[in-house]
């Protein structure tokens, strides 16, 4: 009975962790789908959003009230980064987008360290600090809010891409850039928009994560590493694939951390990546 309770506890933990992973990963997969760029600085965008949320919280706007502002700020930040930087990378050889966004990662981590120092900072007295007890299971309120928020935002993004005019234009650019241009779609505008939305997703993720995580210059790294794995597992460019894969990775990490050791919790996640890439490189729900 006790083993069963432990299992259920881990299962719930895995699902809630996975939902947050999904929110970080959908932005990454959207950007990749539209413009074939893996943004290696995605985790640093998340870190920036977490600092922004913290700043808003110190101004008196709690993490959830500050969330829409963080989303808007990150959206604008994403568009500016695309206009000033990523657009130029796209004109170069394919490796340029890889090491260029990696350079951005190094730059943003350095700036964060220089400005905020390496200290771990948290929102003072965050809301949802209590614990929910249900049928012998204990779940923190914050992780439930984070999970539900992530689920809602992922669904919103999915609906946007599937059912709006702009979303259709994005899928058209993803499908065939040249044909989309010939149909009168402004590819630069769509690319910029996609990059902005990708950043807005981590803006939301940052707002939610500040409910229970501290922020520090490399706070985004573990989330970004899992997001890369999630995106590859789900199929690069697939939003629904990212959600399914994120839940799987959440389970792997929580169960791995419990049955192996907390330091090695990412080992099964990465091994899963190598195996999936070897056996099914298009990912679980992706197309080749």
């Amino acid at each position: 009975m006790e083993a069963l309770t432990t299992f259920a506890q881990l299962l719930v933990g895995g699902v809630l962790t996975g939902l947050v992973f999904a929110l970080v990963a959908v932005g990454l997969t959207l950007v990749y789908g539209v413009m074939d760029v893996v943004n290696f600085a995605h985790g640093e965008f998340l870190m920036l959003a977490m600092y922004a949320t913290l700043g808003l919280a110190l101004l008196g706007l709690g993490p959830l009230l500050g969330l829409p502002l963080a989303v808007i700020a990150m959206f604008l930040f994403g568009i500016i980064v695309y206009r000033v930087f990523v657009r130029r990378l796209l004109a170069g050889p394919p490796e340029a987008t890889v090491f260029g966004t990696f350079g951005l990662l190094v730059l943003m981590q350095g700036l964060a360290q220089a400005v905020f120092s390496s200290d771990f900072l948290s929102v003072p007295s965050p809301p949802f600090a209590g614990t929910i007890r249900f049928a012998g299971l204990a779940v923190s309120q914050a992780s439930v809010v984070e999970g539900c928020g992530a689920l809602i935002l992922t669904a919103l993004l999915f609906a946007f891409v599937e059912y709006t005019e702009t979303g259709r234009a994005m899928r058209a650019v993803a499908e065939d850039r040249i044909a989309a241009t010939l149909m009168g779609i402004d590819v630069q505008r769509i690319n910029g928009l996609a990059f902005g939305i990708g950043a807005a997703c981590v803006g939301a993720a940052g707002g939610l994560l500040m409910l229970s995580y501290p922020v520090y210059p490399t706070a985004g790294v573990p989330f970004a590493l899992t997001a890369f794995v999630v995106v590859a597992l789900g199929g690069f460019g697939s939003i629904s694939g990212a959600l399914v894969a994120a839940l799987l990775v959440g389970m792997l990490e929580v169960f791995g951390g419990f049955y192996l050791s907390p330091e090695l919790k990412l080992v099964p996640v990465y091994l899963a990546y190598l195996v999936v890439v070897l056996v099914r490189p298009q990912g679980l729900l992706g197309r080749r």
Binding site: F85, R88, L89, G92, A96, T97, F99, G100, F102, G103, L104, L105, V106, L107, M108, Q109, G110, L111, A112, Q113, A114, P217
Partner: peptide
Amino acid sequence: GYDLVIYGAIICVIAA
């Protein structure tokens, strides 16, 4: 972090 700022900026500028 200053070293990271400089290295990162150099990589970005060269890449772009």
